[in-house]
Design a protein around this nucleic acid. Structure first.
Length: 269
DNA sequence: AGTCGCCTGGTA
DNA sequence: TACCAGGCGACT
């Protein structure tokens, strides 16, 4: 569930808390989630300092004084929590990184889809080059080009991280509702006016997501363990049977390539 | 381009 | 107790 707004919220919070802190240890009870391996990662990160934090798509990037990068992907149920060493253990806490004497960065993940991965600068560049542009930096021409290049459904295309970064199931559905576009439309059949409206809508819902500090279900929490509020502002996501805010039509739930898809049949054409 | 597998917890 | 949640890589 963590998409661009959730990861961005965590990044902004952590920026104030962890820069300059020294990593003293890393431990796990779920070794598969640490890449390349706990032993290798430990050897290379202990006694380095955190020099910066950034985000690419849904991935959090921790820059280290060694020149390496520690990447964190929360996938569906991941959390990245800044805690005191003395705080009680968190639910599903699987990776613990000791920061200085008193603090910990805790990776918690109920479903264990997420991961923590240490990469060199070279590997980092290889990974990030495959991501599409951040929506905020995308021009209409660039966006139009992406749409024109594919006959896939518009929904599937916007979820493709190689085409555009950071959009997941919640925000793609809300953006399509705001732009009044049916999620099943082939991308290359979307005209220029619709494309303009759609890009604008993508940017708008992501901004709203950040403003409300992300969408929380039972899993997502920010770096301090607080819920976000965007779930109180969903346009269509999780609103089956409820009234569309555009047209008061009834929101319907269907499946597109196996994924839950909420939309309003009466105004999304 | 569509489907499966990775996983677990909450719910019908 | 079966099913559903969905990011994303692997596979067909």
């Amino acid at each position: 569930m963590p998409e661009l707004p959730e990861v961005e919220t965590i990044k902004r919070d952590l920026l104030k808390l962890v820069i300059g802190k020294k990593i003293l240890d890393i431990a796990t009870d779920s070794p598969k989630q640490i890449k390349p391996s706990l032993t290798k990662v430990k050897k290379r990160i202990v006694n380095t300092k955190i020099t910066d934090l950034s985000r690419k798509a849904k991935m959090l990037i921790i820059s280290l004084s060694s020149g390496d990068f520690l990447l964190v992907h929360l996938k569906m149920t991941g959390r990245l929590l800044f805690r005191k060493k003395s705080d009680p253990k968190d639910d599903w806490q699987h990776v613990t990184i000791s920061l200085g004497r008193d603090h910990q960065l805790r990776f918690s993940d109920s479903r264990k889809f997420g991961w923590v991965k240490l990469v060199s600068e070279k590997e980092f560049e290889n990974i990030t080059k495959d991501f599409g542009p951040e929506p905020e930096e995308m021009s209409l021409a660039e966006f139009q080009k992406v749409l024109d290049s594919s006959s896939r459904t518009i929904k599937a295309l916007l979820l493709d991280q190689q085409k555009i970064s950071g959009v997941g199931n919640i925000y793609v559905l809300d953006a399509l509702n705001l732009a009044k576009i049916d999620p099943r439309r082939p991308a290359n059949k979307i005209n220029q006016n619709e494309a303009r409206k759609l890009l604008d809508s993508v940017k708008k819902v992501l901004k709203a997501g950040i403003r409300y500090r992300g969408a929380s279900d039972q899993y997502y929490l920010d770096a301090l363990g607080q819920k976000g509020f965007y779930q109180d502002h969903f346009l269509v996501y999780n609103r089956e049977g409820k009234a569309c805010f555009n047209c008061r039509g009834k929101i319907k739930k269907i499946k597109i390539s196996g994924r839950g898809t909420y939309y309003c049949p009466s105004c999304q054409k």
